[in-house]
Simulated scan of single mutants.
Amino acid sequence: MTNVLYEVADTVATITLNRPEAANAQNRALLDELDAAWRAAELDDDVRVIVLRANGRHFSAGHDLKDRWPAPEPVTLEWIYNAEAERFLGYALRWRNTPKPSIAAVQGKCIAAGLMLCWPCDLIVAAENAEFSDPVALMGIGGVEYHGHTWEFGARKAKEILFTGGAITAEEAARCGMVNHVVPLDDLDAKAYDLARRVARMPPFALRQAKRAVNQTLDVQGFHAAIQSAFDIHQTGHGNALSVSGSAMLTWLDGMKDKLTSE
């Protein structure tokens, strides 16, 4: 693997996003390698905790809009739906339900699909310079495929973020309950690993039970059904874009991604 690095030390598996030159934008190869790393950590009996981090200035600029997957001509909504159900929503839900505790360490920009990498994690540690946003409405779509906004921010803040395309700071995200700890950038990895080591000292089966109890409570409250329903709503954005412009998206955000990679 080159887009993602994977290592295990002292019962902690570290998964590192490794496309810093592209602000860790997610192409197909990165997503497939990332899923393979999650699976390796889940299956390794020596791993008790998973840490997800990123090389470079930014955690993730979201989907790599310049990555063109093999697709039919013309592109159909059925193809888009199936591809996103597998690699976007499907992967994110699988990572969320991995029975081992996971911690995301986030710095810099975390844009749109970047949220779909940190939200499935059980805990989030953010650097003081971290910013979280989902400006996908600029593309004619009402939010990313794993639509956890309402659960992570609350309804009012979720609407503000989606309606304006603006970003919230790490401190704001912590006040919403999305982020567990905010630390100086230089302390980000140290805090994430200190937390991981504390968690790793707990009995593994107890951790698995605790995680299942919390996730299952959210599911009973409607999380899983809401995520699936929002994914279907997301596809209407693609359908509208196809009917209006022949493209899967009405507006591209390449300019913003290029700005991040040049910084």
Results as ranks from 00 to 15, higher is better:
182 V>E: 01
173 A>Q: 03
187 D>P: 00
193 Y>T: 04
200 A>Y: 10
159 K>Q: 06
179 V>M: 14
165 G>C: 05
158 A>Y: 14
171 E>G: 08
198 R>I: 06
159 K>E: 09
182 V>G: 06
187 D>R: 12
182 V>A: 12
172 E>I: 00
176 C>K: 08
200 A>P: 10
198 R>G: 13
177 G>T: 08
166 G>M: 02
192 A>Q: 06
181 H>D: 06
193 Y>G: 01
192 A>M: 03
161 I>C: 01
171 E>L: 07
158 A>H: 11
192 A>D: 14
191 K>I: 08
194 D>F: 00
176 C>P: 07
193 Y>N: 07
200 A>W: 04
198 R>N: 10
159 K>M: 03
180 N>Y: 00
192 A>W: 07
170 A>T: 02
178 M>T: 11
162 L>V: 11
164 T>N: 09
172 E>L: 04
186 D>Q: 15
174 A>Y: 00
190 A>P: 13
156 R>T: 12
193 Y>R: 09
168 I>W: 15
180 N>V: 03
179 V>Y: 07
166 G>C: 09
163 F>R: 07
165 G>A: 10
168 I>T: 03
186 D>L: 06
156 R>K: 15
160 E>L: 03
193 Y>I: 04
195 L>Q: 07
191 K>W: 06
161 I>N: 11
196 A>T: 00
156 R>E: 13
172 E>D: 14
184 P>E: 11
167 A>L: 07
179 V>R: 05
181 H>P: 00
194 D>Q: 13
163 F>M: 07
189 D>W: 09
188 L>V: 05
168 I>Y: 09
200 A>Q: 09
199 V>I: 14
197 R>A: 09
198 R>K: 15
182 V>Q: 02
184 P>K: 13
172 E>K: 12
162 L>T: 03
187 D>L: 04
188 L>D: 15
167 A>G: 09
170 A>Y: 02
161 I>D: 02
194 D>Y: 03
157 K>S: 10
188 L>N: 13
183 V>H: 14
165 G>E: 10
184 P>W: 10
163 F>E: 11
180 N>T: 12
